[in-house]
Amino acid sequence: MSTTIRVVHYLNQFFAQIGGEDKGDVGPTVKAGVIGAGRALQQALGEEAEVVATIFCGDNFFAENQDQAINELLRHVADYKADLLIAGPAFESGRYGVACGAICQAAKQKLGIATVAGMDQDNVGAGLYKKEIYIVDSGATIARMVPTLQRMAALGLKLARRQAIGKPADEGYVTRGIKRNEIAAKRPAERAVDMLLAKIAGKPFHSEIAPPKFAGGKPAAPLGDLKRAVIALVTDGGLVIEGNPDKIEPGRPTRFTTIPITGVQSLGADQYDAVHSGYDTASANLDPNRLVPLDTMRELAREGVIGAVHEFIHSTGGAHAAVENAVQIGRQIADQLKAAGVTGVILTST
């Protein structure tokens, strides 16, 4: 006979029926049995599992005292000898979502138990924790409370029993970015043709490749008076000081180099190089102004067409950049440019 799986349910102060935002500073608390939506969770779990306790904490308390909250809550989880922690669902509540993610990750790491959180897939907590833990997409509103708890229960039971977990679309959790090898029944060419035929016939088909998602930026306001503009030059074409002292990578970049250009009127071939695995750098090496137009910019500044040229060039070798790294590099460069009072950027791309 198999033993009953012991489940602890995490809620915030609102779902624990303590109160709204005014009770956000309630500290970590435990109660035996279910509270509120925990009844629907118990129903979804069936007879093989029992919600032995509910733990809860005010969202503000958790956000402001995360380590203390986690330690106290985990102590309760351990006291109740839980096999499975279910957190939320938090829907689109950001602080609650982060708390659900954090408590699940900590329980998984420190207690080694199965955990499932629930929240909207766009909740900031999903972005932070989806790689570490299983998060069931609850949608943004409370309308899907019961079906979400059912999915969380089903997934949680599988995890607690150490059963194999299927794909995100089948199990209803947020994609964790994990790739697993599997043997397909048909060869790639046949699968591709099947997909194409389905597409032509207007039938549903699923691509086997998930394209990276690019975050759309908010457009910067147009540049006003050019005569007062400070323009920076940035490139992903791998411009470096001769010898590449910062050792930026020619491809798959993880960093960038900052090249001081005070007093430099033109990028001389003997002082600068292009280091890049994605294009033939010969003509840029013969005249690096072909990659970063410093000579022209200096000319325009002298003539008063633009206010000034920013005194540093930021450069990376952009070949085969991983999106996460590229975002990171871009953000760091943008922060530096903003802090330096740059008003416009010309980014040359190869």
């Binding site: 323009i231 010969a282 013969l286 072909r290 325009l300």
Partner: peptide, 27 residues
């Protein structure tokens, strides 16, 4: 691709002119 702000096919003077027009267009 290989020379975003240049054109090795042009004479040095014409290439500079090309670059200037391009940068003005960017501005």
């Amino acid at each position: 691709i290989v020379s975003p702000t240049g054109n090795p096919e042009l004479s040095p003077e014409k290439e500079k002119q090309f670059r200037r027009e391009l940068v003005l267009r960017a501005l």
